[in-house]
Design a protein around this nucleic acid. Structure first.
Lengths: 210, 210, 210, 210
DNA sequence: CATGAATGAGAATTCATTCAT
DNA sequence: CATGAATGAATTCTCATTCAT
């Protein structure tokens, strides 16, 4: 006669609540009461499903990361089997925030870096994701250099530069809206990638301004 | 007869205190008591010299901005009168944080974007600085394109991309230290710049990995 | 399943607490901690039930007003249907504070005028009550004048004078106890009323000194 | 070579400052810094001339009392030597606040009753003044009754009633402006006096509404 | 006498967390 | 599982008062 557990659904609601509140508040300004309200739940219930407030934040990181990676996989599946196309798929997945990303996710993500730097529990999954992405980018970059017959030693550094640029587009978009015109981020990033890796053999970057 | 005013010195101490505390705490975690302790002052004195906690943050923004811009001016004065050299001077001033910048300044700056997005009083000087820097970069980029006999219409967008990359280097450095190897940021950025603007006439980027 | 709400009871306790503390402290001297202590509650709970300290004050005004008006209605129900008797019922209800009013209510009321003058949220219900009472008194006074065949134009002013005298009895009683002998206030006020309205047809004032 | 002491002038300035601030703030809201600012002095100087904040309040009470009593003496000197005229002189001096009293004095006075009830140092001179005024009024009332050949036993109580009405006019005027029409207070009070004492021999009350 | 910086004790308020129901 | 009252520590800010100059 046990009623079916709805724990997963409730956890999801609560994470949603945090994401919604963090769209325009700091993590610390997002009180548990406000999160619960945004989730349509009583404040006491939050601590039934999460040990503490920080655990919600960790869950949110994991969810954002999972979402980005799923999008990445989708793009990759659709991309032709070509080194530059695979690099562009990465950039599109992570930077084309205007398209299919929900806007609160962007705002949340920019806040998470700071929290990750201060809170080990958040830092671990955050850093793991960054490292995974860095590795993926490095692999793409190496493939391009290899196809070009060039040494791949510096692939990791170039990948780091690209990752920085992607992150920077998020942050600049959040802190100074309008500086990067909407829809332009991906194109700019692709052209910067070409600058980092560039040779005669590369295809032109689509989408960006010229 | 009256004790000479030491307000400026005290304000400076307090701003220092905030910067030091924000090196490993969020702005909100930086309690006034902690700031006062870091400044070596009594807690009540903080509110004698600043109307409220946020005013310290605003002063900190202004100080960081002024510091960066002073460094920029210095680099610019030393640079040869050449479009690419002037662009590199900008990148060096803003991205070579390892060199002569105090490390807490970097950590602080990454937090300020978020605060700027939520607090108008912080957002105004922050945004003004971003806009100034964007304009300066745009001017540099346009000069390069012009020297090359190319249209300058997209200079603003390219400048935005560069600014994003610079900001991203800060953030990535703070949130995932080691991903960008120390001292590499400037080189990476210069090569990305060449990718954005690049043609046959440009000089090679110094300093970065190849 | 959930614990039954006891909010109303708690709010009432807290208002009681404020009233008790304000019996010998100013509103501003009545710290939230002291109010909570007087109510037998933890200090955090006060802000769970009231948005802020001022909201307690507003609730106290409303409660005092409601109490006075209930007493007035009771007296009015018991009074013969005669203009002077109805006026006396008003005076008795509002001025016979010694009798059935709890003494802290008197002390509180005298403080409220000042607070009402400075705080709109308090001023609105306070002023509304004063206006209601002024209107009621005006009606009584007009009935008396009319029964006497005299013009009622000045009824409002006479009512204001009576209201002032009633208020003054409160204040004088609180600030200089003993100047008005206990139990004498109502009689004095009735005789002053007769002076304001007086003619041959009026009945003698009962209760007061002669 | 000692420069002449300006202590008295400074004290006066400071008392003025408190009076000005208390025109729209509670005594407790009137910070020493605000008082000093209103007086055009530095905050440290206040405590050179007064032992503490409360001492300024006591001085203000004394000054307001002295002002009222001086006005009373002046009116009395001008009045014909007639019992009713002498009573009216009292009422005019204390209630005709519109005329020659500065408005902040009225606002201050209403606050003082409350403070007097809680602070012995303020209560002593306040209460002494009330008692002096009550005695003066009692004497006037007794004179009237005596001239009428009636017993004077209840003169004190009648005087208390009048004093209450005068005080009430102040308070009502401050807390609910407009209820007593400007300039009407004195007339209303005189007619209430006649009601309390009234007989055939009394003169009509001037000034008040009829 | 005068200045204004400094102190330190509260003040109101917020909030994560607990817990009785 | 769910509710929402309760707790108590921490936070920002105010302010009377002191004191070096």
């Amino acid at each position: 006669m046990a009623r079916p557990s709805n724990t997963e659904e409730r956890r999801s609601q609560i994470i949603d609540g945090l994401a919604r509140v963090m769209a325009d508040k700091t993590y610390e300004q997002a009180s548990v009461a406000a999160i619960a309200r945004a989730a349509g739940l009583g404040p006491g219930l939050v601590h039934y499903h999460f040990a503490n407030k920080q655990a919600i934040l960790v869950a949110l990181v994991e969810r954002l990361v999972a979402g980005l990676e799923a999008r990445h996989r989708r793009r990759l599946d659709d991309a032709p089997d070509d080194p530059w196309a695979r690099l562009d798929a990465f950039i599109d997945a992570f930077a084309a925030l205007d398209a299919d990303a929900d806007p609160s996710a962007v705002a949340c993500w920019t806040r998470l870096g700071d929290e990750a730097a201060r809170r080990p529990e958040v830092g671990v999954p955050y850093r793991a994701a960054i490292d995974r992405w860095h590795a993926a980018l490095t692999e793409r970059v190496a493939a391009i250099l290899e196809a070009d017959g060039r040494p791949t030693a510096a692939a990791g550094e170039a990948a780091a530069g690209l990752l920085a640029a992607i992150e920077g587009a998020f942050h600049l978009g959040a802190a100074a809206p309008g500086v990067i015109p909407p829809g332009m981020a991906a194109g700019l990033l692709k052209r910067m990638a070409r600058g980092l890796l560039g040779t005669a053999t590369m295809p032109p970057a689509d989408g960006g301004p010229r």
